[in-house]
Write a protein that binds this DNA or RNA. Structure first.
Lengths: 240, 240
DNA sequence: GACGTGTTAGACAATAGTGTCTAATTTTAC
DNA sequence: GTAAAATTAGACACTATTGTCTAACACGTC
């Protein structure tokens, strides 16, 4: 249950580094990485103890030292593992961005839900929010690659996707990257408070957040004459 | 320079708890709290050592134990200190919200800049982002009060302020609290990436972020006929 | 069954941190 | 100036943790 997303996406990325084991005992490496991710996320780098990780991974402490020479090596391996998986999931989700202008409101909302579910609210997302925040300054080089290929790239990629829709006349956008950043910000507007104390939004909260975000986004960037169901908007006429 | 905001707002909140000192040695308490805030922020709770705090506060370790019985007591005191100050600054800033509909775009942008500068980008803001994220789950009761009176209240308070403007016809808003949350989200849209690796935005980045946020906010919630400088919008007339 | 690889439990030294205690010193109040 | 209060440096016991080492063990292949 808790490791659902991890377990799901793990098989997709074939582990290429051949450690002391071939592939039969690869499961040890995986359980160590998973347990370490949980403990590091829960306790932070200095708060996490190797013994705790060993117990949670159902592995002896010595095994951890066999695979990863020292605590910091393990930490770096965990970070890289999570980041690679998170970035893969991010771009896999981005590839589901709607390209047809029909049902834009619903399609964008569905996309927003996929994005939050797959990338922001899962264990990897929580891990990254927490660890980048707390350990980011201590390991600048470590997170730099992820930052470049993850968060930084998402705006431009999403911006390009919005550009496509704009060229089809479905959106009126000046600065596509800005619109992308704002779209992401709006999606998170209702969820920030939930993230804050470590919780995960319910399905309903997710849908409401997506709906709210898309409505406002379209009011700002959608084609003119946006009919809102709540209050009958005054009829507008374009004069020249 | 670094403690500018802290030093500014500190005298405003009279310290009421009378520890072992009356008020002459109160400066010790303050330097301990400041140093502890920095170290806890940098290293997290378990990573921070009392010795490090003592050195940074230019105080002997024993003095810290005299004032605060143990590490956790000190931690809680620091958290409460920062939160109280942050909330005070937050509502002090909220009180500068524009109430005149003229020059709304500029006034809202200026307000957004004040908000980011005074509450989000200063040391206290960084401290809270980091510590609530990493230690929030360990001390649920500790942050609960702040959450109620800070982040949770800001939406409703800001929402009420937007409502005033809306009633004057300056804004077209259905859900005021939602609009407030989205305003905050938009203001942060361009800054998230900077927060991510612990940096502080420059004055110019701050202004651009505020300008972008307000423009989009007004496109979504502003009165109709929003003139954009880039592309001459068609003149619109409300019929009935 | 022998062998090699990987795993395990436990002991171990080394280090670092917490919290206490004491005696000397400084600061503050009167 | 004197006495009380606060501060300091240092030693101290205690605990937790890291990382190493060793001997026993599991498990497969040959």
């Amino acid at each position: 249950m808790k490791n659902h997303a991890m377990a799901l996406s793990r098989p997709s990325t074939a582990r290429k580094d051949t450690g002391p084991t071939q592939r039969g005992q690869c499961s040890k490496r995986v359980s160590i990485l998973d347990a370490a991710a949980n403990v590091f996320c829960r306790e932070g780098f200095s708060g996490a103890s190797i013994d705790e990780i060993a117990i949670e991974a159902c592995v002896s402490r010595q095994t951890i030292y066999n695979h990863y020479r020292e605590k910091e090596t393990l930490f770096v391996a965990v970070i890289e593992d999570v980041m690679e998986r998170a970035n893969a999931m991010l771009f896999s989700t981005l590839s589901t961005f709607p390209d047809k202008p029909d049902h834009l409101q619903q399609d964008l909302a569905d996309f927003a839900i996929r994005l939050t579910k797959n990338c922001l609210c899962n264990d990897d997302g929580k891990f990254l929010r927490r660890l980048v925040q707390s350990e980011g300054e201590r390991y600048p080089h470590l997170f730099e690659g992820w930052r470049q290929h993850g968060p930084c790239k998402i705006s431009t990629t999403l911006g390009a996707l919005f550009a496509k829709l704009a060229h089809k006349g479905a959106l009126r956008i000046d600065d596509f990257d800005l619109a992308a950043r704002q779209f992401l910000a709006l999606v998170n507007a209702d969820l920030q408070m939930i993230y804050l104390f470590g919780g995960k939004p319910t399905e309903e909260e997710l849908q409401t957040a997506a709906k709210n975000a898309v409505e406002t986004f379209l009011r700002a960037y959608g084609p003119r004459v946006q009919e809102t169901s709540s209050q009958p908007a005054p009829v507008l006429m374009a004069v020249s």
